[in-house]
Computed example of a mutant assay.
Amino acid sequence: APTYLVFFNTAGGEAATLMTTHAATLAAISAGAVFMGANTYIGNAPNLMVKAIAEDRGVKMPSFFGYMLWSCGILLPLFVVMTFIWLQ
Rank of each mutant, 00 (worst) to 15 (best):
A24V: 13
T25W: 09
G32Q: 06
G37V: 04
T40P: 06
S71W: 01
G66S: 02
P77F: 01
T83Y: 13
F65A: 09
G12C: 02
M19F: 13
A27N: 10
W86P: 10
Y41R: 00
T83S: 13
V50G: 05
K60S: 11
I29H: 11
G13Q: 01
F65L: 09
V34P: 03
T40Q: 07
G37A: 07
S30G: 10
K60P: 07
F65S: 10
A24G: 11
A27D: 10
A52H: 12
N9I: 09
M68I: 04
V81H: 03
Y41G: 00
N44G: 11
A11P: 06
P62C: 03
T17L: 04
A27L: 10
Q88I: 12
V50A: 07
S71V: 02
F65E: 08
Q88D: 14
M19W: 11
F84L: 14
T3E: 05
A15F: 07
V34W: 06
A1H: 15
L69H: 11
W86K: 12
M68L: 06
F8M: 03
N39G: 11
A16S: 13
L48Q: 13
L5K: 15
A33S: 08
F8C: 03
T21G: 05
A52N: 13
F65D: 08
F35N: 06
L5A: 15
A23W: 05
A45G: 09
T25Y: 09
V50T: 08
L69K: 14
F64P: 06
S30R: 04
F64Q: 06
T17R: 05
A11N: 06
V59P: 13
G43A: 01
A54H: 01
N39H: 09
A11F: 03
N47V: 00
M49A: 10
P2R: 01
G66T: 02
P62K: 02
M19S: 13
T25I: 09
D56L: 15
G37D: 04
R57V: 11
G32D: 05
A23G: 05
M36W: 08
A1F: 15
F7V: 08
A1W: 15
I29Y: 12
I42C: 14
P46I: 00
T17D: 04
A45Y: 05
W86I: 12
N39S: 10
I53H: 05
P46N: 00
P62Y: 03
I42Y: 15
I74N: 07
F79H: 10
T20P: 03
L78C: 12
Y67M: 01
S63K: 02
L75C: 07
G12Y: 00
N39P: 09
F84E: 13
I74D: 07
P77A: 03
W86Y: 15
